[in-house]
Design a protein around this nucleic acid. Structure first.
Length: 774
DNA sequence: TCGGAAATGTTTTTT
DNA sequence: ACATTTCCGA
């Protein structure tokens, strides 16, 4: 057990204390993951069966990494048998196994937020509410909050405080919407994210034999990020732990940043009251950051009133000062960050993957994408529009969902006329009416289409559609999931339609669908779990992918490995990087405009800033812009109050003096301020170009990162003709070899140089500049 | 029924 | 600025 010797005193104590309730208050960078993995390895080595350990983490990726580390320590494969994953993914597997207790099909669909809002929107319409007043997002949040607090539709309608609040908000109808929404999801055989927690709780409360089974099974439990659990999660954990009470929770009140999802720090304080002899260990030595960064972080968090006292310290070097840099506009902010990265790479031999750019909202990523692309720096954005939210993927997934669960009306409606089969809204409404009158599901109404009174071409189209689905349902029993999914795509016309689209965007969509098919193959053909919850069917696959975060998707191919990472601060939680840029430090952005008038909200923003700062190991930049584009117009922004809270002796500040010009940003060329919108105008150009010239190819795919000409102006599509030499901003130079269609539908076939090859482009969208031949 | 044009809303944060 | 939704003519 040599691995235990590597730990400090507190860490060791946390690992060796295995029986009874344990709470670990783990400061940022204090080796929390190391303690958790070592503790599990120690349990396994002491002879505890892996099947008896439940470990709930924040992301699936964190769980996978921990399994890997445990495997390395123990040099065996036992870690594979741990019950380890996010609350949602572990509970979804249990619910799948126990589905019949609650009257759900085993292959129940899991709705993501978009699916759920779509269902809810139809209910708001059906009840005749004004959609401006009853905005889907607002109603959805009310329902979500209720579920996270274990308040069902009946209790919601009876709760005086809730009813008073809805009445005051002029939306007394939410209780009725909640009721119908829950009923509709149940009819659809579907659960949304919150249902997974709520139904898990109901399962354990309503079926004592099920509760007893899992209480007995999970002899040891570990809960990571405990400060971010909500009431539903708290009660589930408490129920499961009630027999053995071998429950270890790990958290840090200073990093509680999910109250909008119902998370409550109260769970940390309540924990100490729930068990008789709670052992508390504080991990206070930080191994991650420089003294400067850690001191600044401590300074920031001390502005908060609500916190558990602790003294986070480090033995690490003092390090460099934190650089604070203000730019004229959001575009200039993007440029300055890209310049800092280039400079650091040259001077200190950092690689792209050493840098992270962290922002408050996803919408802020744009200016950084642009500037990084301009300087040929490879990057990857985490979050935002995830892979599984893309239209082509959602469409394909909807087909597969219907295959395993025809009761899922939402998915049936999504694909019934996709590709277009001549089944329009009028037809759908008639079928819905028939289904309601006869109290049957939408799908069952489709199966009885003759009785609905629909004739002719539409009738045939519907018959063909249901036949298609039923044919592939039976195929699922004899062929593997990949073949069925692939053939369904071909037969339905979905794949041929995607394949026919030879535009750049169309090709990307087709590639995405190929990626989806490959992931089905990989999932169903890789048996990496044992036990009763292990299930490699298509139904199981569909349930798991909805619960995947962008961070969970592995960075597979080499080209995407050495990249600058862009993400929200929320998404960066639990991660660390040598060099960190925390950007957009402006009032109304960070802290967010929504949080300015409430102490608790503002303190959560400050904790968020604390999380951002403590991601950095070596170097930290804080940037802000004086002006920023918002809905297309430039607006003025005051520096964030958080900038003022930074201790002056630890920072190197470079703010703009006069309104439109002034000091240069730290360590970058003064000419940055030459162009108003940061579009790398003529005046600002030279210094960066020199750097590019020296450092041109840094693991960059030259084919897709053409540097556009300085004077690039797209030519009007009507003037583009065969034989011309043209330039594309991304693909570089090429020759037009064919032109077809006209006006809005004009397409051109272009053969590009430098290995990019032949592309069919829709001229209305592709911006091309004629270089020669006009 | 369907496609393009016009109007409208969008920005917290995530499972 | 951009994406989504609604409107309108064929």
């Amino acid at each position: 057990m040599n691995y235990i010797q590597e730990l400090n005193e507190q860490q060791k104590e946390a690992v060796l204390h295995i029986d009874g309730p344990l709470m670990i208050i783990a400061g940022a960078g204090s080796g929390k993951t190391k303690v958790l993995t070592t503790r599990i390895a120690y349990l396994l080595e002491r002879g505890v069966d892996a099947f008896q350990i439940l470990a709930l983490t924040f992301t699936n990726k964190a769980a996978a990494e921990m399994k890997e580390r445990i495997t390395k320590i123990l040099k065996n494969n036992e870690a594979k048998n741990l019950y380890m994953g996010t609350f949602h993914s572990v509970f979804a597997k249990i619910l799948r196994f126990e589905a019949d207790h609650l009257g759900y099909p085993k292959n129940f669909t899991i709705y993501d937020t978009d699916d759920a809002k779509s269902v809810l929107k139809q209910i708001i319409k059906a009840q005749g509410f004004d959609e401006k007043l009853y905005k889907v997002g607002f109603v959805y949040n009310r329902i979500s909050t209720a579920k996270n607090n274990l308040i069902g539709p009946a209790e919601y309608a009876q709760d005086k405080d809730i009813q008073i609040e809805d009445a005051r908000n002029n939306r007394p109808g939410i209780a009725g919407l909640y009721r119908d929404y829950v009923n509709q999801c149940y009819k659809n055989g579907a659960m949304d994210f919150d249902d997974i927690l709520m139904n898990m709780y109901i399962l354990l409360r309503k079926f004592p034999e099920v509760l007893a089974k899992y209480q007995h099974r999970f002899k040891y439990m570990m809960i990571d990020e405990y400060q971010d659990t909500n009431l539903a999660q708290y009660h589930i954990v408490k129920l499961l732990a009630a027999v053995h009470e071998n429950i270890c929770v790990v958290g840090d009140d200073a990093q509680s940043i999910y109250s909008f999802r119902g998370a409550s720090m109260q769970n940390i304080f309540q924990y100490q009251k729930d068990y008789s002899d709670v052992h508390i260990i504080k991990l206070e030595q930080n191994y991650r950051s420089t003294k400067t960064i850690l001191d600044a972080a401590n300074h920031i968090i001390n502005n908060n009133k609500n916190q558990i006292q602790k003294n986070l310290w480090t033995d690490n070097e003092t390090g460099e000062k934190i650089k604070v840099s203000q730019s004229f506009s959001d575009n200039d902010e993007g440029k300055s960050v890209a310049d800092f990265i280039i400079e650091q790479k040259l001077r200190n031999h950092y690689s792209n993957s050493d840098f992270a750019i962290l922002y408050r909202t996803n919408a802020q990523s744009r200016s950084f994408e642009e500037s990084l692309r301009r300087l040929n720096i490879n990057y990857k954005i985490y979050g935002g529009m995830s892979f599984y939210q893309r239209k082509e993927i959602k469409d394909y997934v909807a087909y597969l969902r219907v295959l395993v669960n025809t009761q899922d009306e939402e998915s049936v409606k999504r694909i019934i006329n996709l590709p277009a089969r001549g089944i329009g809204n009028t037809t759908l409404n008639r079928i819905s009416l028939f289904a309601n009158e006869n109290n049957i599901s939408f799908w069952d109404a489709l199966m009885r289409i003759a009785e609905v009174g629909i004739k002719g071409a539409t009738y045939t189209a519907i018959e063909n559609f249901t036949l298609l689905i039923r044919t592939f349902q039976s195929e699922l029993n004899i062929k593997n999931a990949y073949d069925v999914a692939m053939n369904l795509g071909k037969q339905s016309g979905l794949l041929p339609e995607l394949h026919a689209d030879k535009t750049v965007e169309g090709l990307a969509r087709f590639e995405n669908v190929e990626t989806l098919l490959n992931s089905i193959k990989e999932f169903t053909e890789t048996p990496d779990e044992e036990g009763e919850l292990a299930d490699k069917s298509l139904g199981s696959y569909l349930q798991q992918i909805t619960l995947l975060t962008d961070a969970d998707r592995e960075d597979d191919d080499e080209a995407t490995k050495d990249v600058v990472k862009l993400m929200t601060i929320h998404a960066a939680k639990g991660l660390e990087f040598p060099c960190v840029f925390v950007v957009g430090l402006e009032e109304n952005i960070f802290p967010s405009a929504m949080s300015l008038y409430d102490r608790d909200d503002l303190e959560e923003e400050r904790r968020l800033f604390y999380v951002a700062v403590t991601r950095a190991k070596k170097k930290l930049w804080i940037t802000l812009a004086k002006n920023r584009y918002r809905f297309g117009t430039l607006v003025n922004n005051e520096p964030s109050r958080f900038v003022e809270e930074l201790p002056s002796q630890m920072i190197e500040k470079n703010m703009l003096a006069a309104p439109n010009y002034g000091g240069s940003s730290v360590g970058s060329p003064p000419s940055l301020w030459g162009s108003k919108d940061g579009a790398f105008g003529n005046k600002a150009k030279q210094p960066q170009d020199k750097i590019i010239a020296q450092k041109k190819v840094v693991g960059v795919n030259a084919a897709s990162t053409h540097q556009p000409s300085e004077n690039f102006v797209a030519t009007n599509p009507v003037n583009i003709q065969m034989g011309m030499r043209v330039e594309h901003q991304r693909f570089g130079f090429g020759k037009v070899v064919n032109v077809e269609g006209n006006a809005a539908d004009k397409k051109a076939k272009i053969i590009f140089e430098n290995g990019v090859g032949e592309k069919m482009m829709m001229l209305n969208f592709a911006k091309l500049m004629v270089v020669e031949g006009n």
